[in-house]
């Protein structure tokens, strides 16, 4: 398996804000069709890593490649058609637009220039709208399809947040703390959803809930202070003394399924 070309690879990636080093020498390789999680204490640089991988933040050093192609200097919006889509830690939806329209837009984002023609209407049968309906089914949001995103419950908004990434039909899907602020029932549903997404996507996700991380990940990357501390399968990571020290001993509890 380790001989496979990684779907996404970061080589010595660094991000500086002025004199502040948010990320340094991060080398990461995501194997296709795996679920890969990133954990670490607050301020470890997890979200910055996501920003750099999706192109929202420019890398100060190092190189990012997607299926072997260098995308370090490709802007964030142009990485979407290449097959990278993400969700945000803080829910970021089109609050005033309906759930269906949110997902339709996310699906359209794969071929954004088609939407640039001011005379072209929305195709009622095929294309983006069909994808939106499909994603709504998968995320159990069909019954609220016409409701404005801002009116949904928190759990529904978090699911739609993930749905925005799914609708782009990406090869690699990045989820930034998909369970943040969720109640216990919603967390279980999200766990099932992520595992389900792992069947037809490569998933990279940041998570604080160790139950989920240890349960469904193929690979876990532990970060601290902008660097990679340890990387490996859940069992290995859980027993690593360095990780135990970083987490003050007892925070990693989840069972391995």
């Amino acid at each position: 398996m380790s001989t496979q070309v990684p779907i996404l690879a970061a080589d010595n990636l660094g991000v500086r804000y002025g004199s502040f080093v948010a990320l340094s020498d991060v080398t990461l390789s995501i194997r296709p069709n795996t679920i890969h999680s990133v954990i670490g204490p607050n301020g470890a640089g997890k979200t910055t890593l996501f920003h750099a991988l999706t192109g929202r933040v420019r890398a100060s050093s190092g190189r990012i490649s997607l299926n072997g192609r260098d995308i370090t200097h490709v802007s964030d919006d142009k990485r979407v058609p290449l097959g990278i889509a993400r969700s945000f830690q803080v829910t970021s939806l089109f609050q005033n637009l309906s759930v269906r329209e949110n997902l339709r837009l996310a699906a359209q984002g794969r071929t954004p220039l088609q939407a640039l023609a001011p005379w072209r209407g929305v195709d009622p049968r095929g294309g983006a709208l069909a994808v939106a309906d499909e994603v709504m089914e998968r995320l159990e949001l069909a019954h609220v399809s016409e409701r404005a995103a801002g009116e949904l419950s928190h759990g529904q908004q978090r699911r739609l947040e993930v749905g925005m990434a799914v609708a782009a039909k990406p090869r690699l899907i990045l989820l930034d703390e998909p369970t943040s602020g969720m109640g216990i029932d919603d967390v279980e549903a999200m766990k099932a959803l992520i595992r389900d997404l792992g069947r037809d996507h490569t998933v990279l996700f940041i998570e604080h809930n160790m139950g989920i991380v240890m349960n469904i990940s193929d690979t876990v990357t532990v970060m601290r202070a902008g660097r990679v501390l340890v990387e490996g399968p859940p069992a290995l990571v859980r027993d690593d003394p360095e990780v135990r020290r970083a987490y003050l001993g007892n925070m990693i509890t989840g069972d391995i399924a």
Partner: peptide, 15 residues
């Protein structure tokens, strides 16, 4: 959509 949330519009791929 851009009016509503420009950051998200960019994140889902719109220039």
């Amino acid at each position: 959509a851009i009016r509503d949330n420009e950051e998200r519009a960019r994140a889902i791929g719109f220039p």
